[in-house]
């Protein structure tokens, strides 16, 4: 499974990358939208993990929409923000609330992978919200 991680918080990004690599995931990291879109041009990602509030370029919400429209890459949003727009289910697969543990992250990715492949979706961590019935994109 190839995952694009877009997180501008350097240490959090480093931690996510290390956690996912330990779980056998091939990880590509970007700190902003321009870098993320450039990577998506060259790589077929199964999933993008996006920080909602990026310091540079467009927001994570905008990036999720662009990745879905241009590259059919579904996104799981990572956020510490309490309130998100109601319409995010139209272009994001789900939301994982920050802060999360490595275990939360891995089980969230497993739940997303199951949803994308059409299999039974295991119970994810408490901070995970999935909009699987509203998202059809993704290659599984």
């Amino acid at each position: 499974m190839q995952i694009l991680v877009v997180e501008d918080e350097a240490l959090v990004a480093q931690d996510i990358e290390a956690t996912l690599r330990s779980a056998g995931v091939e990880v590509y990291a970007a700190a902003g939208t321009d870098e993320a879109l450039s990577l998506a041009e060259r790589t077929e990602f199964d999933l993008a993990l996006l920080d909602v509030r990026l310091g540079y370029g467009e927001s994570g919400l905008m990036l999720a929409e662009m990745l879905l429209d241009r590259h059919a890459v579904p996104s799981l949003l990572l956020t510490g923000m309490g309130e998100l727009p109601d319409h995010i289910g139209a272009f994001a697969l789900g939301v994982l609330a920050k802060p999360f543990t490595p275990g939360d992250l891995v089980s969230a990715v497993q739940a997303v992978r199951a949803a994308l492949t059409g299999g039974p979706v295991p119970a994810g961590p408490a901070g995970l919200t999935l909009f699987t019935e509203r998202v059809t994109a993704g290659r599984g």
Binding site: E9, L11, V12, Q14, D15, A18, R53, T79, G80, M81, G82, A97, K98, P99, F100, T101, P102
Partner: peptide, 17 residues
Amino acid sequence: DHRAKNALAVALALLRL
């Protein structure tokens, strides 16, 4: 709220790294 949660995420990452 966002910064507090972000700080916790960074603190957790620091612990692990």
